[in-house]
Amino acid sequence: MREELFMAGTGGQGVLLAGQVLAQAVMEKDLNVSWFPIYSPEVRGGTTTCTLVITDGLLGSPITGHPTTMLLMDGRAVDQHLARIAPQGLAVVNMTLAPRLPSLPDVKIVTIPATDIAITLGSERTANMVMLGAYVALHPVVEIDELAAALDVLLPERHRKYLQLNVRALQAGADAAQQAT
């Protein structure tokens, strides 16, 4: 098993944290994982990506030219990255912020209104967890409660009050993905 997951969005959307939560949960399952970020110097609003490689063997390259899965948070991420997804790849797209999609015959695209769902739950900023929840529903490398346990490890003290909100966002994303497919 070798999963090459690429996540992209805009600084402030929580792409890096979502990737770290998944990496932490995967590590706890005794799989190998790497998390590799690229972000521009802006504090908010720059492009942000991270790549996770998940395997049950030797990890090898943490870099990939053609990720097998993409989580894309907005239209800019779709425009910049979707074209290089691997054939038969899976793309999960936040359709609230990326309403128009190119047609790629070889790619499975699942659209989730992640930002709308997050706003309904009470915080737009949980759209990252909605997307992550959708991903694990479609590609069950870890369970929602394992992501919740990872969040428990990673959330800094000042953000602990948001733990339950984030877990609800994960579950809402998983539910939305199941409805969408």
Partner: peptide
């Protein structure tokens, strides 16, 4: 910069 910033177990 990759080895510096990437996370692994």
């Amino acid at each position: 910069a990759i080895l510096a910033q990437m996370m692994e177990p």
